[in-house]
Nucleic acid binder design. Structure first.
Lengths: 148, 148
DNA sequence: GCCACTTCAGTTGTGCACAACTCAATCGCG
DNA sequence: CGCGATTGAGTTGTGCACAACTGAAGTGGC
């Protein structure tokens, strides 16, 4: 790749990635708004549903977000009665997160979202796989390079 | 695609897209920070450099951003002395944007960023093309569907 | 046991994204 | 021409992302 003129593509990729991410969020917004959720809250809940009970630290590792972002987000989810937060007893630095019954019940109400999204995007399984592969590569490169 | 179980892939895609977009921003951040720019400001400047002189409306159309986002961003670029803003004379609703000499000079200082990004990502031309195609599809689907 | 070091969650401040809104300028129909 | 509808930029308020920081809790070397 070095030595090749990629200026045109880079321009498109860096912008298109940004735009596609926002477009995806817009696709979800109406459905999530009906449940009183934002897109990042939905992503956090998916991890919480999957894991059942985890620390803020582990949620941050899964979502690649720090406590500066998660603390206020989790405070809002707790305020909505969707999750439970409680200090660890053995290690009082950690905070354990778990869904409340109301929070757990919400999982059923978003159960069809993945399918509806897949239909809306209208990509083949191969395209999904390709996309996933490429996005993972970008995240891997960012983690490795740390800067350009 | 309808009727296929895509739950697993969707989960990954919706999160991976979000994470990859943030990772890309992180890759650029150190280089842009040295110039006093944020990533959205950089994207806006690319359009401004390319077009030379355009209205806030046209910049918003190019970036898919509304005046609510652009007005404060452009105010900061103007305050840094990188762009010029002036009301149109024939139509006083419009505001024309153009780079100042300092703003135009900045283009040379980011000239190698695309190449450095391409090297860091280490994708082939085919992969870049694939990625661009898939991201465009997502944006297109979002524009068409408007909701899922 | 003591103390420097690290870890974890939370806070503060800045900037972006977006909805909802304001307000002036312009347009277009009758 | 007159006036309602539309357009363009800006403002306000909410939430997310992230850097930089705080402070309490735990850890390890001595």
């Amino acid at each position: 790749m070095a030595g090749t003129d990629t200026t045109g593509l880079e321009q498109m990729i860096c912008f298109e990635l940004h735009a596609a991410s926002r477009a995806m969020t817009s696709l979800y917004r109406p459905a999530l708004e009906a449940l009183g959720l934002t897109y990042p809250q939905y992503l956090a809940l998916r991890v919480i549903w999957h894991r059942g009970r985890l620390t803020v630290r582990d949620l941050g590792a899964a979502l690649r977000l720090d406590s500066g972002t998660l603390s206020p987000l989790l405070k809002r989810l707790e305020h909505q009665g969707l999750i439970h937060r409680q200090r660890g007893t053995d290690d009082e630095r950690t905070v354990w997160i778990s869904p409340t019954p109301a929070g757990a019940a919400l999982e059923h109400r978003v159960a069809d979202l993945p399918h509806r999204l897949a239909c809306a995007l209208d990509l083949t399984i191969e395209e999904f796989t390709q996309l996933h592969h490429l996005l993972t590569r970008i995240r891997g490169a960012a983690a490795t390079a740390s800067t350009i």
